[in-house]
Design a protein around this nucleic acid. Structure first.
Lengths: 336, 336
DNA sequence: ATGAAAGCGCTAACAT
DNA sequence: ATGTTAGCGCTTTCAT
């Protein structure tokens, strides 16, 4: 039963051909265009494939015909449910065309992103879905110019040839802060990431606009800059707020993971929410409605966004910019 | 500046060689063993690489030398924070050796797993990390026999040649249910997945053992079988418990996502936790401590597990079974 | 319907 | 130090 593989681990198409007593071309035809092969030989070849447990060598295949079936995706943080929900949407779309997802997390680090892009390109991926961690698009544009299609995820493209699926961040942040202002809060903290991250810059803009429109001074916003948009970052930042900005009565968090961390700190210091501190998150991830207390958050359709982005990539039509409208979901963390 | 690529999108090593006025072998040497090349020519080649924006063709490279730098991983559910934390651990380890992660989610479906395995194998991955959704290991063993190393993640291997990193599920479940019994609960529901999933079978065994050891009838456990180990599944199952098993005062959930869903339902029906229903989860994911109420859960070191699994895969030493010990983290969802 | 053979881009062994 | 070349496994003309 063991195959005569001359020490090689995997059977090649030549091994199959030898075993079935046909040429390699015929085996290839059985694999790719079975209708061109007679019933009889097809059966013989298929038997040989079974016997040898033959598996195609994807590298050789791709080298020859250059049609990759892998799509690369780079998200900011693989532990953020917003991005895994988006990844799930991507997978939903890819599996339709039996493509595989190669997922990487840049951890908001441009250098890590560059490394991943390089690996993806060497790999010859069919295309790349990416949430860039900063404003610079040169590496991405060059990648595209060299022939790898790119779609931006959770970031509006200003390049006419690059599609994107995003959400209006300015509007989303405005909804959040306006809500806090409507509730009577005047001293509001904003736990944000570096404004080099576009989402952070845009939401900051929205937050400040909301203040301005309400006749308040945008600079009255107490801004904290987290080095990492994670629950750990949120926890540390909220501690700072409590220690150094005791006037603050409401906090807007750049995302729900940060809000989660903020809740850790508030709980630890026995600050009641919302009476001691109102809290708004962003993304409306799955756990938001059952936090203690249920978290007010700005909803983004993560899964649909991922699906759509993958669809734009595979579809290959003209570039287009899809912009979703965010929605404020009010729960007891603000209106308790 | 544009390169003479004869219509091809990407520059090849031959293009670089032509531009630099050297042979392809020399270019290859600059790329792989720069010390063998004189400073002068190296500079010329590097300039050409820059000019042409040359990127290695990974397929050709792998075809030739057969050393893949991609590791495949298949988890049960990409939206479960336990698995993304594990994936993060995997990435931590892979990035040390500049390997890339190819991540797939089987969604607990053996057919999906088979498809992913096939794609990974065709791709020629360096190895596979996998949490199998059922007991059958034939596809996995065959993959290994054909030369692709495999490490089981979150599942004990009974095959001497296959390494694994797991946690003692029987013990974990026993801790959880014993805790509920200690609190005086006698009517306990267990929101479990199909027992074809090994983790589910093992935790069921632990739950029943806890009952037996306490002198109770193991069959008194009210078992619900969810088709999906997600928050949606947990929500639906908890609704059933409330409607059809009003005697139940405590529920053990197979994981924290299910517990999250259960909380949705409890909140919707205004059942207080733990007074109306005590709740225990499994995994102790990041949001567990700040749920309403904070969730008692069985902790598993997800990130370390992923790291270790990747380490075993890349290390290539003799197969070994790493078994972690779970830990019960008691919070107010049971002992409020 | 089937076979023979070229060639995808790269690496490594060998030759100079 | 650099060049030449075989060949990895596959797909795809072009013959037969």
């Amino acid at each position: 039963m063991a195959a005569p593989l001359n020490g090689r681990a995997r059977a090649s198409i030549a091994d199959v051909a030898a075993r079935a007593g046909v040429s390699v071309g015929t085996v290839s035809n059985v694999l790719n265009r079975p209708e061109r092969v007679s019933k009889h030989t097809r059966a013989r070849v298929e038997a040989a494939v079974q016997d040898l447990a033959f598996v195609r060598n994807g590298s050789a295949r791709q080298l020859r015909q250059g049609v990759p079936s892998v799509v690369g995706a780079i998200v900011l943080d693989i532990e953020n449910p917003f991005f895994t929900a988006a990844a799930r949407g991507v997978e939903d779309r890819l599996s339709r065309d039996s493509h595989t997802l190669m997922l990487g997390s840049s951890d908001e680090d441009p250098a890590r992103q560059a490394r991943l892009l390089q690996q993806f390109e060497e790999h010859g991926v069919r295309g790349v879905l990416i949430t860039p961690p900063d404003e610079t698009m040169t590496a991405i544009e060059q990648l595209r110019e060299r022939g790898t299609p790119v779609v931006l995820l959770d970031r509006l493209s200003d390049h006419p040839d690059i599609s994107s699926v995003s959400v209006d961040n300015v509007h989303g942040a405005k909804l959040a802060v306006r809500h806090l202002l409507d509730l009577g809060h005047t001293d509001i903290a904003f736990l944000n990431g570096h404004t080099s991250i576009p989402q952070c810059a845009e939401r900051r803009q929205g937050a400040r606009q909301a203040l301005a429109e309400a006749g308040a001074d945008p600079d009255s916003l107490v801004e904290l800059t987290l080095s990492s948009l994670s629950s750990e970052g949120g926890s540390a930042a909220m501690s700072t707020v409590l220690e150094e900005h005791s006037e603050v009565t409401a906090t807007f968090c750049i995302n729900d993971m940060v809000a989660l961390g903020a809740l850790w700190s508030l709980r630890e210091r026995r600050v009641a929410v919302p009476s001691g501190m109102a809290l708004v998150g962003y993304d409306d991830v799955s756990f938001a409605p059952v936090l203690a207390p249920p978290l007010t958050s700005v909803r983004q359709p993560a899964r649909e966004m991922g699906f759509r982005a993958a669809d734009l990539l595979l579809g290959g039509g003209p570039a287009q910019q899809v912009v979703h409208r965010p929605e404020l979901v009010i729960r007891t963390s603000t209106a308790g």
